[in-house]
Every structure is written in C-alpha cells, then in structure tokens.
Amino acid sequence: MLSSDKPISNSNPTNSNPTNSNPTNSNATNNNATNSNPELIDYLEQRRGKIISNTGGWFPGKGVFSHGYSMLEELVGEKSYFQILILNATGKLVDKSLADWVEALYGCLSWPDPRIWCNQIGALAGTVRTSVMAATAMGSLAADSRIYGVFPLIESVTFIQQALAKHKQGLTSAEIINEAFAACKGKPYIMGYKRPIAKGDERLEVMEKVGRKLGFEIGEHMLLAYEIEKILMQQFDEGMNINGYMSAFLSDQGFNPQETYQMFSMLVASGVTACYLDTFHRPPNTFLPLRCEDIDYQGAPLRKVPD
C-alpha cells in the first residue's frame, strides 16, 4: 500500500538528479543540472508501475469496484445504467428517480437533426464512411463548445449558484441580472437564458412534467431561475433554455458545476449516431453537396509564386 496523495512542499531545490547518471544521454554536458525538487522525484518513484485510484477497478476473481460498491453484486441489475453513469461521473450514487430525470434530459439533447453543429459532424462522417464510433465520439466532442452543448453548463450552474448566494445576502433578482450584464460589459447575456435558432424552449415543459411525475419539488435555485426568467421575458422577450433549467434543477440536487459537466459528457451522442446513419445509408459524399462556387472565396487574387 502506498502513501496517499499529498501536496509537494516547496522545499529548496537541489541539484539532485538521478537521471543524470544515464550514460546514453548523448547531449550530456556539465550544464545539464535540473535543479529538481527531490520530494517530487520521490513522489514519482512511489507511483512508478503502480496505479493508485480513489475510484475503483477490476480485480480478476475478486470483483469490480466503483466508489466502494461491488459493481456486479450491488450495481449491475440492481441500479439503472444512469445511476451507474452518475456514480462514475461524480462518485454519488443517486436515487433512481434522479437518474431517470437525467436520462430524460439526455433524450432532450438527442435530436436527429443534422443542422445542429455536433450532429452535422455525424452526418459528414457518415457521408465519407468513417466508423460510427468515430462519428459519435467526434460529434460528442464538438458539444464541448463555448456556446452550446455541454461545456456551458459550467458557467450556467456557477451563475445560478452564485445568484442564489447573492439573493440570500439580499440582492433582488433584478440586481442579480444587472450585475451579470455588467460583467458582460453591458451585454444582456446570462448563460442559461436565450437560445440560438429559436425563441423559447419546448424542452422545459417536458422536463417539468418529468420532474412532477418523478415527485420532485421546485427547489430554491429553480425558484430564483424562474424569477430571473420572468424579468428577462418582460425586458428582453427572452426566456430560460434547457441549459438554465437543468443547471437550476441539478443545483437543487446538490451538484456543483464540474459534476454537472462531467455527468453529461456524452449528452448529444445518440443524436450524432442517428445523423451518421442517415447519411451512411445514402450514396457517399452526397450530404449537402457543394459546387466550387458555393464557397465564397474572398482572399488574395491569383498571383505568381516567387522562386
């Protein structure tokens, strides 16, 4: 058993460097001291050839473990896939009702429409016959976007959690909104509200219905999110989007921004797969075909290459 992770102290550097004894170092000179911290070298040495995990692992003949649970005895067949997914993503074994809510949310982001940017990667991959796994994985990666998909959850969860903290300190919803706009140099912008392509978000009503069906109450983050939406609707005719809704809901369930981001890492995968298959089953390279003239070239005119 190895010692647990501990911070490396900022001790005075020394010239101790065990790697300097390597006779194959063709560039060895007297000047190759690294001024290394011996504590860090020791830290690395302790981990050489070893795996130290606080998550779990598979031990043939003994079992598979995740966050203290025996996967094959306590999880598989006993808990839903989404309970296991959330456990692996956050270390928290949640109730089935919450896992079902997250599963429903995944359905909200699995639309087979190749006009959506991440989905179009699936369609383009299908039309040139990559594998379905490459298409799905790369399309999912595209949702790591600053403006749509999964990555913005970090900002929107952070916003609503900080907003509630400010609200409890006495700030009104309107003041919270004004502060958020000021942070954006006056632009009327808050992550979790407004949406590209369309005004309004049809997924909110569906997820509210799912929440009621599963027995969830409206929590304090969600109440504030609705208050903020009401003001934004009155002033800008812009409402909450699914990102804002799930951020408030999951904040009420005790998740932090990073955990929320982690549990939705493959949120769009199914829609990407669907878009891949639609073009995969058609003649190759026929998805949205482009003539040469369909690209608007605005660069330098024809010029001679200098020798």
């Binding site: 190895l2 647990s4 070893k50 795996i51 995990s53 606080n54 998550t55 692992g57 031990f59």
Partner: peptide
C-alpha cells in the same frame, strides 16, 4: 493487481 491500490 498487486500494484493496483484503491484508496478508500
């Protein structure tokens, strides 16, 4: 397995 340590 002898070099796989789960810290819990």
């Amino acid at each position: 397995d002898e070099n796989y340590v789960i810290e819990r």
